[in-house]
Structure formats: C-alpha cells, structure tokens
C-alpha cells in the first residue's frame, strides 16, 4: 500500500475551515487558465449574439424570400450565411438556433448533473442492499425505450420546449450516476471519510461535503461530454417531430438539414456546424479548466 498517513482528522478539519476559500481558490485558478478564459469569452459572445439576434440582422427569422431560395452567402442582401431551402436568412436562423441549443445543452445537463451526482453518490456511499436496488433501477431506466419515454411525456403534458430539457436530463443522468457511484466506492474507503464517519458526522453531510467534492473531476469531464450529446439528441427528437417546431429551429435541426445538401449548398452545413463545434470546444476547455481548478489534491 502506497498511501500517505496524513491524519484524516486533520484533513477533514481543514476542509471544514477552508470551505469558502475552496471556491475562491478555484476561481483564481480557473482565471489563470488561458484556454478556459478564451473559451468563456467566446461562449459569452455567442450567447450575447443569440440574445440580440433580432437586432443583428435586417431579416426576421421566419421570413421567406421567394427570389432567394437556397442561395450562398450574399452580402448585397445581407444574407451573410446564405439562405436555407425555404429562402430564409441563415444567419439569423443560426442565432435563433443558438438560443434553443444552448438552453437545451445547459439546462438538460444541469438536470442530469443534479440527479445523477446525488443518486450516484448516495448509492455508492450507502452501499449494500440500497446500492443494489438503486443500480438495478438504473438498469431498468437504461433499457427502457427512450423514445417512447419522450413521446409519452409530449402526449401527456403537451408540446413544450421545457419538457425536452426534462426528458433529456432525465435520460442523461444515468451514466453520470454510474460514474459517480464508481468514484464514490473508491473514495469512501479513504481514511478521511472513514474518520469523519467515525467522528459522528452525518451521512448527508459526508456525501455533500466530502464525497461529492472529491468525485467532481470525472463528473465535470463527463458533463462537458453530456452537453454535445444533449444538443445532438435534441435534433433527433426534433427530427421525429417532438422537439422544436418550425419556424423555430436549433443547431441540430439546421445541421441535419445542411448535411443533406452538403455537396450542393455547403454553407447550409458549414455555418451552423461551425457554431456548434466552436461552442463544444469552448465548453470542453472550460470543463478542463474547472476540473483542474477544483481538483482537491492539487491545492
């Protein structure tokens, strides 16, 4: 066994004392990470553009220009990204798509994060029969046809964009829960946890104060993987007619439309795909930065 014998009591105590400075510290570290800072700026710009979309282009997002159907970028008429198969301005549509995609990405991931981390940590920490039962439930959820789940939600509650967040989040938390549980299993045997337990600290407190901060690394990495997954799944749901309805759109929808005509009208694929890629890269670098900044062992 190659383990330091630092007093678990001392470690636990330290974390209590430094409760606030942990986050301050993390922030300083995050802002020292250049890639993360650049990414935040880029994401910020995209978000601001999405919010200000109506003011950035002379074209409404749903206006059909009969004379300019499926045309390449055209500066004379202010179609900077060209037009789509219905003659609508692609620039403003890409920005409107950003609204939906960013919201879906962030909200659904947050839902999955909250459910998944709590669930996984509890299962892993409590262990035994409870763990077994909770994980079997995850198995059941994994095997249930996700699409029927979504369809049912739509049928029962009607069409609503927020339902997409819930549905997606409610499906994506499963893997998160498994990862957190796995990490918890190994963390909970660590001396400082066992010491805290022996010291009479309540289980809830141990889970939220000690376990979760210690498993945050892989969680954040997986979170940055969930965002693209959610954004792309949304496009699949929309494709089935259960997601955003025309004339609203999302990046996923724009990209799948563009992919169909990639040879004839490459701009229809290029611009939305570029926005998606840049966003995903940015999330990814921020995730890495956050992970490094929050790493308890690195402090």
């Amino acid at each position: 066994m190659i383990h330091t014998t630092a007093s678990a009591d001392a470690m636990a105590g330290m974390e209590e004392l430094e409760g606030r400075s942990l986050w301050q510290d993390a922030r300083i570290r995050l802002f020292r990470n250049k890639a993360a800072v650049v990414s935040m700026v880029v994401l910020g710009i995209i978000a601001v553009m999405a919010v200000l979309a109506p003011y950035l282009s002379p074209h409404p997002y749903d206006e059909v220009y009969w004379e300019r159907i499926q045309m390449g970028p055209d500066f004379e008429n202010a179609h900077w990204f060209g037009t789509d198969g219905n003659g609508r301005d692609l620039f403003v549509r890409t920005l409107y798509g950003a609204r939906v995609s960013l919201m879906v990405g962030i909200l659904a991931t947050t839902v999955s994060l909250i459910i998944g981390v709590t669930y996984g940590a509890v299962a892993g920490y409590v262990g035994g029969r409870v763990d077994n039962l909770m994980m079997r439930f995850v198995d059941v959820m994994y095997s249930l046809p996700f699409m029927f789940f979504v369809i049912l939600l739509m049928v029962i509650f009607g069409r609503n964009i927020f339902l997409i967040f819930i549905a997606l989040g409610a499906v994506e938390w499963l893997t998160m829960a498994r990862i957190v549980r796995g990490q918890t299993l190994s963390v909970k045997r660590k001396e400082f946890i066992e010491a805290a337990h022996a010291g009479g600290v309540s289980s809830v407190k141990i889970i939220f104060r000690h376990i979760i901060p210690n498993v945050l690394g892989p969680v954040i990495v997986y979170m940055t993987l969930t965002i693209p997954q959610v954004i792309l799944t949304e496009s699949f749901i929309s494709f089935l007619g259960l997601g955003v309805q025309e004339p609203l759109t999302s990046w996923g929808v724009l990209i799948s439309e563009g992919a169909r005509v990639m040879e004839q009208s490459p701009w229809m694929l290029m611009f939305p795909a570029l926005f998606l890629a840049v966003t995903l890269f940015a999330f990814n670098f921020i995730g890495d930065g956050l992970r490094d900044a929050l790493d308890p062992k690195d402090r």
């Binding site: 990495v221 997986y222 992970r291 790493d295 062992k297």
Partner: peptide
Amino acid sequence: RLTRGSMVEVLNA
C-alpha cells in the same frame, strides 16, 4: 477525454 481527466487526477494523487 475521460481517460485524460482521471489520469490527471491520479497523477497528482
């Protein structure tokens, strides 16, 4: 990405 993430962590352990 998962490997890199946890590897960084373990390397510091």
